[in-house]
Simulated scan of single mutants.
Amino acid sequence: MKIVALAGSIIGSKTKTAMIKVREMIENKYPEHEVTLLDLADYTLDFSDGRNYFEYDGDTKYVTETIMGADAIIIGTPTFQASIPATLKNIFDLLPVSAFRDKVVSVVVTAGTAKHYLMAEQQLKPILSYMKAHIVPSYVFIEEKDFLRKEIVNDDVLFRLERLIEDTVLTSEAYEIIRAQKDEEYDF
């Protein structure tokens, strides 16, 4: 299985720290799966101009094709102005409407305070649903107080990240079985 851990911002350290931890946890618990960390701060991406994702080149082509080739995606996003950052929205705009069909998507949200807890429910999940994702229902919300010196120091957050990863992998495996059963129904 191919898993993409997407750090959806080009500034700040909390979301990147969380997604590095996600990658480490996947590599330790599920070494048989291929995990790729895409930190948007490491790439120079074009703004979406309506072209198909495969018509772009350079970093934009690499990032979009890596996402499209994934079986599961764990999206990490900070909360900016009670919503997702423009860099993450641009990724969604670069991809086709049905980009997440047959993909399991889960979410990790970082924010300064608990006031933005519902941002994922109100802003991010509707976009993922529109793009045909199989969304893992629970998500991990990490506050400023859960970090110290670019490390997650709250054991409950670490436990919830482990559970999110497990739910993502198990859900993806279940959908793979369902797809295989549906494919067997056809005689060709």
Rank of each mutant, 00 (worst) to 15 (best):
T66V: 11
I67F: 08
I67A: 08
I67Y: 05
M68H: 03
M68S: 01
M68D: 03
G69S: 15
A70I: 02
D71S: 14
D71N: 15
D71K: 13
D71L: 00
D71M: 01
A72N: 03
A72P: 06
A72W: 06
I73T: 05
I73N: 04
I73D: 01
I73G: 11
I73P: 00
I73E: 04
I75N: 07
I75T: 04
I75H: 10
G76D: 08
G76R: 14
G76C: 05
T77M: 11
P78H: 12
T79A: 11
T79M: 09
T79N: 13
Q81D: 07
Q81I: 01
Q81M: 12
A82S: 15
A82I: 01
A82C: 03
A82G: 00
S83G: 15
S83V: 00
S83Q: 05
I84R: 03
P85R: 11
A86L: 04
A86R: 10
T87L: 04
T87W: 00
L88Y: 12
L88P: 10
L88K: 04
L88T: 02
L88Q: 09
K89E: 09
K89M: 12
K89S: 04
K89D: 01
N90Y: 07
N90P: 07
N90D: 10
I91G: 11
I91W: 10
F92T: 01
D93A: 14
D93Q: 10
L94Q: 05
L94A: 05
L95P: 04
L95W: 08
L95Y: 02
P96R: 13
V97H: 11
V97I: 12
S98C: 06
S98K: 13
S98Q: 07
A99L: 05
F100E: 03
F100I: 07
R101M: 11
R101S: 14
D102M: 03
D102Q: 05
K103A: 10
K103Y: 08
V104H: 01
V104R: 01
V104A: 08
V104S: 14
V105G: 06
V105K: 07
V105L: 08
V105M: 10
V105N: 11
S106N: 13
S106P: 03
